[in-house]
Nucleic acid binder design. Structure first.
Length: 540
RNA sequence: GGCCCCAUCGUCUAGCCUGGUCCAGGACACCUCCCUUUCAAGGAGGACACAUGGGUUCGAAUCCCAUUGGGGUCACCA
């Protein structure tokens, strides 16, 4: 049995997704159970209604769970509740056990006092270690009196002397010398357990046998081990997964979006937000303090307004950008694991069958979006025509409803056919072809494209365009094939086919880049194409 | 800074455990050429790595040690 145990969040980021995927694959490959547990023991961060929004990302990826919160037919189970905040009475029983055995004690230092001690240690370049001698020596009666008096107190675990060895299926064994683990807090002043305590109790009670988590948790394992021993719990088998970084080696985080925005804002010299994007007060506070983050919606509207492209961080970002869930899973698997040999492309069925801890790599990976994009392209090209149309259209209905509503079914299908082999994402076709849904009378032309392809050349592109217009006007059948046969002889008479294709392209699309020209004309239709050409000619 | 972990092309990685078949394989990116109506896509080639220094050994990418570099961690966050 494995578990994925994130803190509540509306979004799943790629690192979390990889952890979930590996936990899922490992459990499924061993006829085991995959549990989702929500670690919501931090009251400050756990109030949102959207607290488990990330579950929809999990399901989109195809990662279902056997036990956990009930959500769209997933979850349930006999070991609940699966929200830690609902398990307080359970933890309380174990606190009392440790208190009674002398393995835990009350401590009364305030957060400020501890911060000061920490700062002092830091100043001397020493690690901070809580030594609980005076607290442990306190007479039970005094402790009781202070508790009765309503004084704020935490419960700390009394870590016994001795080195602690962590067995890890991925990293091997590591031994922390005595004194590395201090008397850490297991119950906060608000009565909630800390992460360490809740994890240990829940993993035992839920029957978790294998704990796969990110490497940043490695040292925490020592704390978990001493707790398990004191509570007479079984020790799960650990596997700490290598971290995933940005290409520049920095940690991947939602802050990266703010970073990109700050840079774009600075480049544009903006001192106030574009109207209708971000509240001016929020904006100036955000500009002033580089540690603050805009919320997702604000960030997106600001990005749209200033033409910045936010980096994809969350699984949902990738979905919106038109990546395929199966490709995300495939690619994520390759960050930290490989099946060996030269095999790179595989699905989650394969992963389930072949995933094993011994082939997990020890080194951190840098997340390479370019390779992801290449994988996405490969997967799209491998789709059947009908599949592609279905998936693009479903993406379009959600992300680009206006675009979809302005195209007839036939137009959309032609556009798909013209775009299939060149689409790296499901979104590209929409972003690259807005000229199609622009009204004929509203189309504007890119100045550079006009001067190069219409005004330039000898004779000018405009002359060829006018000639082509005459030929097109005589076409009764507006299909790709007949357009081609109508235009080709003329084009060839000019020597270079580009002489006619480029002026036409610019005239009907406004830009020098579009799908193949015959497809472009066919999609627009005769009336629209001629109207655009006429307006273009008139505008010169 | 203490402690822990890690180290193969720019990137993800195979090979390492069970030294020789590795003057190190694949993929993405890159470069060149071809195709071509734009952008892509596609085709054919190419360049590119065992961090350094010591051992062990007939022989080391593979085993050992040191150095260097990178990362993690040191919360009443998870």
């Amino acid at each position: 049995m494995t578990r994925f145990a994130p803190s509540p969040s509306g979004h799943l980021h790629v690192g979390g997704a990889r952890t979930a995927l590996f936990c899922w694959a490992f459990a499924k490959g061993h006829a085991g159970t995959f549990v989702l547990r929500i670690e919501d023991t931090d009251q400050k961060r756990s109030s949102d209604a959207a607290s488990i929004g990330f579950v929809k990302d999990l399901l989109w990826l195809g990662i279902g769970f056997d036990e956990g919160p009930e959500y769209q037919g997933q979850g349930g189970g006999a070991n609940g509740p699966y929200f830690q905040a609902q398990r307080l009475d359970i933890y309380q029983r174990y606190f009392e056990m440790l208190l009674a055995s002398g393995d835990a004690y009350y401590a009364f230092e305030s957060a400020d006092e501890l911060t000061a001690l920490r700062a002092e240690a830091k100043g001397k370049n020493q690690p901070f270690r809580y030594t609980g001698e005076s607290a442990r020596a306190r007479a039970p009666a005094e402790v009781q009196r202070r508790l009765d008096g309503g004084e704020a107190a935490v419960i700390r675990f009394h870590t016994r002397a001795g080195a602690i060895t962590i067995h890890d299926e991925i990293l091997g064994d590591a031994t922390l010398p005595e004194g590395e683990v201090d008397d850490f807090v297991i119950r906060k002043a608000d009565g909630f357990p800390t992460y360490h305590f809740a994890v240990v109790v829940d993993d035992e009670l839920m029957g978790v046998t294998h704990v796969l988590r990110a490497q940043e948790h490695f040292n925490n394992s020592a704390k978990h081990i001493v707790l398990q021993d004191a509570l007479k719990f079984r020790r799960p088998i650990y596997g700490h997964l290598p971290l995933i970084f940005n290409p520049d080696g920095s940690k991947m985080s939602k802050r990266d979006k703010d970073k990109v925005l700050r840079k774009a804002v600075a480049e544009k010299g903006l001192t106030s937000p574009p109207v209708g994007t971000v509240d001016p007060l929020v904006f100036s506070a955000w500009l002033k303090d580089k540690n603050t983050q805009l919320d997702l919606e604000a960030a997106q509207s600001l990005a749209l307004a200033i033409g910045a492209v936010l980096p994809e961080i969350n699984v949902d970002d990738f979905r919106k950008s038109g990546y395929l869930p199966e490709v995300i899973c495939n690619f994520l698997s390759l960050n930290g694991w490989s099946p060996g040999g030269d095999l790179e492309k595989f699905d989650t069925e394969f992963l389930k069958k072949h995933f094993d801890l011994s082939r997990v790599v020890k080194t951190a990976a840098k997340f390479d979006r370019t390779k992801l994009l290449a994988f996405n392209l490969d997967a799209i090209q491998a789709m059947s025509r009908d599949d592609f149309i279905a998936r693009v259209s479903s993406h379009g209905r959600e992300m680009h409803p206006e675009f979809m509503s302005k195209l007839t079914d036939a137009q959309f299908r032609s556009l798909c056919d013209a775009s299939h082999e060149r689409s790296k994402t499901l979104d590209e076709l929409f972003r690259a072809n807005t000229f199609i849904i622009t009204a004929d009378d509203a189309l504007t032309w890119d100045e550079k494209a006009i001067s190069k392809h219409l005004r330039g050349g000898e004779p000018t592109g405009a002359v060829h365009l006018a000639a082509a217009r005459a030929i097109l006007a005589g076409c009764s059948d507006w299909s790709v094939a007949s357009l081609e046969s109508a235009l080709k002889p003329f084009a060839q008479s000019l020597g270079n086919v580009g002489k006619i294709a480029q002026p036409l392209r610019v005239a009907v699309s406004g830009e020098s880049v579009s799908p193949p020209i015959y497809d472009t004309l066919a999609i627009l239709g005769k009336a629209s194409s001629l109207r655009r050409i006429d307006r273009c000619l008139a505008s010169l």
